[in-house]
Design a binder for these strands. Structure first.
Lengths: 215, 215
DNA sequence: GACGAATCCCTAACAGTGTTATGCTATATT
DNA sequence: AATATAGCATAACACTGTTAGGGATTCGTC
């Protein structure tokens, strides 16, 4: 992604970037905000059920899906990748943290219904976020392979997270399993099968890398 | 970090990078391997105790310390930051995964002693890694602020991770507390107070960012 | 409708980047 | 001692983000 390439593909000159976004960083910042908005609307499309633990697991699945389908964008959103000199500002991070709101509400319901141990719902939501983010990040960067591949890690991690928060083995296992079905219903069966949007991510992400590319 | 700046500070020309490392990517790769080695020797310096849960928490603390003291290097090691065109190769990632070995052994001891539920120790070690990595990553990128700052998140996450693996609230709390003391003894009291090494990280990391820098 | 103003965009250039080709200079080898 | 080789410097190429200056187009207003 470079200003000259953008100009070439758009059939214009590099100046359009500067008149519309101020700089390349400005363009990246706009993309990051778009990504946060996309994540927020994905959370909004979740139909909350009567099982808060299942709903919590569902937010994790949506987060992972979003990350995988917008891999490059996701990396920039959470500061992982320094794209064209862009660095996250405190305002940008605030945009990101805002997406925790539905997770906090979910955690509060889990605690209120006695599924989770009494605790600060913000802290519980953070635990979910941190662990899920770590799993997604390492998955994206290719660190999770057989026999502990990303799917296996993610599924079992969902259960252990619920256990760590206070749920029982049986209840957590069942809720996580049910969340997988709800997730499938939500994205496979719906008319909106993807969180990827309109090519904001340049087609990168999950493709295989050849060794020659790395040197 | 650029070839010309390196050359200038070293009082040579840019060619030294190419004769010694092949390319800028090659230099970064060497730094990454150095970073993995540094993490491995940090794990090696841990004196394993009779409490495997405490030891497991200790590896998490060492991981976090290492990340904070080598922030930029850490970001490159785990694929977060694309530095000068460098991309992780499968071989590089294998170097990284190798650092999980002591964590896996720790997890196995936790299971063998009945502190953790019977499970695949590799998977348990991965859960620890994923969650800790997420916490560290988001801490490094400034996402953890009051009231859920990095310290609070990390400490409480350690406990919930042990609970998720099967430990009891009382035992986990005590082991995590004890690990903090062991950690302090290990790094504050020892003759080697830092994991930072010799300026491989360019002095970045935890310094404050000014708003003007981000645009 | 006509004029002023603002906006948008192109071309050209500057400073920076990684990288390569060429040649020189020391050191090491035989 | 003669040769081979390794290491480094210079200069250049192709690329990057960014800025300055000059046209063209559109908009608002009289």
């Amino acid at each position: 992604m470079s200003s000259r390439r953008i100009a070439k593909e758009a059939g214009t000159s590099t100046m359009v970037v500067y008149t519309h976004f101020g700089s390349m960083s400005g363009l990246v910042r706009e993309m990051v905000h778009e990504g946060f908005g996309r994540l927020a609307s994905a959370f909004d499309r979740i139909n909350w059920s009567g099982d808060p633990v299942m709903d919590l697991a569902l937010t994790g699945r949506v987060y992972r899906r979003m990350a995988n389908e917008n891999a490059h964008l996701f990396s920039v959103m959470f500061g992982d990748r320094a794209l064209r000199g862009f660095e996250l500002s405190e305002e940008d991070r605030q945009y990101g943290r805002f997406n925790l709101v539905p997770v906090v509400e979910c955690a509060a319901r889990c605690i209120a219904e006695g599924r989770f141990r009494p605790a600060d719902e913000y802290l519980v939501a953070h635990h979910m976020w941190l662990a899920t983010h770590g799993a997604v990040t390492l998955e994206l960067h290719g660190y999770l392979v057989e026999p502990c591949d990303a799917d296996r890690c993610f599924e079992s991690q969902l259960v252990t997270l619920m256990l760590g928060a206070g749920d029982t083995v049986e209840a957590a296992t069942e809720s996580v399993r049910a969340s997988a079905e709800a997730f499938a219903r939500m994205f496979v069966a719906s008319g909106r099968p993807s969180l990827a949007g309109d090519g904001l991510d340049g087609g990168g992400g999950r493709r295989e890398r050849t060794p020659s590319e790395s040197r």
